[in-house]
């Protein structure tokens, strides 16, 4: 089922064309909207929310026309803006309760939902303190909570990982994945990094300068840049030699070993080789994880 669809959507501002004949579609689950800064991601979200009239073309969200049924759409949708949007002198609980009421929830229901939602996004005791003292990670969680508090059918998350450290990014991405699967709320998440969206999205739309670059299920994106990172306690050299001997593309980055997973071959082979090598050499394995791909590769790819 199509959660949102646009048809020849164009938005021209006096000095710039933000969206140019954009025709995209997204179904349930997590959809990534990728583009460089200024590609038109935020403009698209504003049009989908019915806050900005398109110059031409049509946009539908949950089968409602964005240009004429903005109010109904905003009742069913949550929005997490890219920029800071939190007053510093109220607590997260008060703020999220207030925002739930603004979405039409009665006060008692708003309180319950706010407590539930803040727990789900991982804010605990600190939610009673004024937001002014929060870290960036906590602020992002409050912003996410206010977008989810009224239990929308769809959320727009504009650059939710902005300003987060690597661990914060991982936690936020895991949370987005949970929203799309466990919570059953469809997600449209924007980012300028395809690599991080790859891990949580079912479908990715890439736009550049307001035009569609590509739109496809995540599996269709090339895996050529996929790599695994290996960290062992001692004996990095023997491991490098061993894997090199097996014909794997190995690179050492400090204490980390990066092994390229070729796209054409059976990917399991490389993983097996690493596992066996570590096992046979009797090394203490500290870390074994997937490396994120690089967005540059996708932008370099010819448009299908």
């Amino acid at each position: 089922m199509a959660i949102l669809a646009t048809e020849g959507l164009t938005k021209r501002f006096p000095r710039v064309t933000a969206l140019d004949e954009l025709t995209v579609m997204a179904g349930t689950g997590v959809t990534g909207l990728v583009g460089a800064n200024g590609a038109g991601k935020s403009t698209l979200i504003k049009i989908l929310l019915g806050l900005l009239p398109p110059t031409s073309g049509r946009a539908r969200v949950l089968d409602l026309d964005a240009a004429t049924h903005g109010l109904e759409i905003r009742r069913l949708v949550g929005y997490m803006p890219e920029h800071d949007c939190l007053p510093p002198d109220v607590s997260a609980t008060e703020f999220v309760v207030h925002m739930a009421q603004m979405s039409g929830l009665p006060r008692t229901a708003a309180r319950e939902r706010a407590a539930d939602t803040l727990r789900h996004v991982g804010l605990h005791e600190e939610r009673y303190r004024p937001i002014g003292g929060y870290s960036t990670g906590m602020r992002q969680r409050v912003k996410l909570a206010q977008a989810l508090v009224h239990d929308p059918r769809l959320v727009f998350l504009d650059e939710p990982t902005n300003g987060l450290d690597p661990q914060g990014r991982d936690e936020m991405l895991a949370l987005i994945r949970r929203i799309g699967t466990e919570f059953g709320i469809s997600v449209l998440v924007t980012s300028h990094l395809l690599g991080e969206l790859e891990r949580v999205c079912d479908h990715v739309i890439v736009i550049d300068a307001g035009r569609l670059l590509r739109s496809s299920a995540i599996g269709d994106f090339t895996q050529a840049s996929q790599a695994i990172a290996v960290e062992v306690e001692d004996g990095l050299e023997p491991l490098v030699e061993r894997l090199g001997g097996l014909g794997e593309a190995v690179a050492v980055q400090g204490r980390l070993l990066t092994v390229q997973v070729p796209a054409d071959a059976d990917p399991g082979r490389t993983y097996d080789a690493v596992r066996d090598a570590v096992c046979d050499l009797g090394l203490n394995l500290v870390r074994l994880e997937q490396r994120r791909g690089h967005i540059e590769d996708v932008f370099k790819e010819p448009v299908a």
């Binding site: 949708v77 803006p81 800071d84 925002m99 603004m102 979405s103």
Partner: peptide, 18 residues
């Protein structure tokens, strides 16, 4: 003033509040 300064307004207007 706080709603303007801390940019809370977009949160109101992304809800069924005109």
């Amino acid at each position: 003033a706080p709603d303007l300064r801390f940019r809370v307004l977009p949160l109101y207007f992304s809800r069924p509040v005109t």
